[in-house]
């Protein structure tokens, strides 16, 4: 691995490092689908927050194909590409009677986190 030097900083900052992957992977879900977040409880890295597990929402948007962080964190490289969706969860589904009026959460979830409701 090269040494990070000051002259490399502007290019790195401006270029970034997208986790989007240019591979053809079929989506498991489509906009409008009702989906339930799986109740997984890994001891390793995950981007599925606890408050979403087991809850049901609706796919609002398909963001395309990204590396799966749960796998990439262990492998050290972008791996396990799959679709990421913006999923809308109603406040009442997440918080029951304690939900605010007329409020919802949109969260980005990977194929591996979801199953059809």
């Amino acid at each position: 691995m090269p040494t990070l030097t000051p002259d490399m900083v502007p290019g790195l900052v401006a270029g970034g490092a997208s986790c989007r992957m240019d591979v053809d992977v079929a989506p498991k879900f489509k906009v409008g689908d009702a989906v339930t977040a799986r109740d997984i409880n890994p001891l390793s890295h995950t981007r599925l927050p606890r408050y979403i597990r087991g809850r049901t929402g609706r796919i609002a948007r398909d963001h395309g194909v990204f590396a799966f962080p749960d796998t990439s964190a262990a492998s050290g490289t972008h791996s396990d590409p799959q679709h990421v969706y913006s999923v809308r969860f109603e406040g009442s589904e997440l918080w029951g009677d304690h939900a605010n009026a007329n409020a919802c959460v949109y969260i980005d979830l990977f194929d591996n986190y979801l199953e059809l409701a």
Partner: peptide, 15 residues
């Protein structure tokens, strides 16, 4: 007002 829907965006992934 409660008439205004509040959407909270959790940027937990790569977006």
């Amino acid at each position: 007002s409660d008439d205004v829907e509040i959407r909270v965006w959790d940027s937990n992934a790569e977006l």
